[in-house]
Amino acid sequence: MLTFAEEIVLLALDEKEGVITELPHQALHAAMSGAVLMELCLLNRVDVDAKQMKVVDTTPTGEPILDAVLKDLQGSHPEHTLAYWLNRMAGHHAHEILRLSFTGLVRKGVLREEKHRFLWVFPDRRYPRLNDREFIEVRARLRQALLGTDIPEVRDIVLVSLLNACRLIPRILADDELPRAHARIAQLSRLDLIGQALAQSIREIEFALSLPMML
């Protein structure tokens, strides 16, 4: 089974280039942070309400990156807002979450790692898909959640929320399907409080990045 962070990486990867091209660096880091917080939520290690997030169980999960983040959360002020945690994690852990997500996908036989040199000097890694099975499975699950009317599985609601925050839903649906799924995307995305905070955080990043162009 893939983690949320691995599923986002898989869906965000450009199939031909084997790199993530469409997401701004900061937005990708915010998404990785949100993915790990959601994973910890579903494992009942942290809980979120309308105002704050707190650790409710310090038992290690066995996943190195989740446990590193959990340890960091334990050692900090217990009642910060979600926005605070997303920003803090994007700064402290996101690079490592991303690295471990690629490593996990390679280990699980989903991607293969290719080492190149950019301008013959700088190391450059690419991750082409080794097989399409996981990609097709994740995409089919999410298409059913988005185009159907049943209550989706909780994991799929969370993933829709993450992907919508990162503007990656067009990787799941065709152009002509997007308009009719619009209300459903909004409905499912809103159900997850971390997804809501993540979407706000990414909007702020995009706004900050657009400022130099507006000046």
């Binding site: 809980d47 309400d49 209550i151 909780v154 159900l191 409080l193 971390i194």
Partner: peptide
Amino acid sequence: MASAGLRALLSLAKKVK
């Protein structure tokens, strides 16, 4: 009610459906 409660209700509604 925290987000765990929302998830529990969604999960139960899906099981009953």
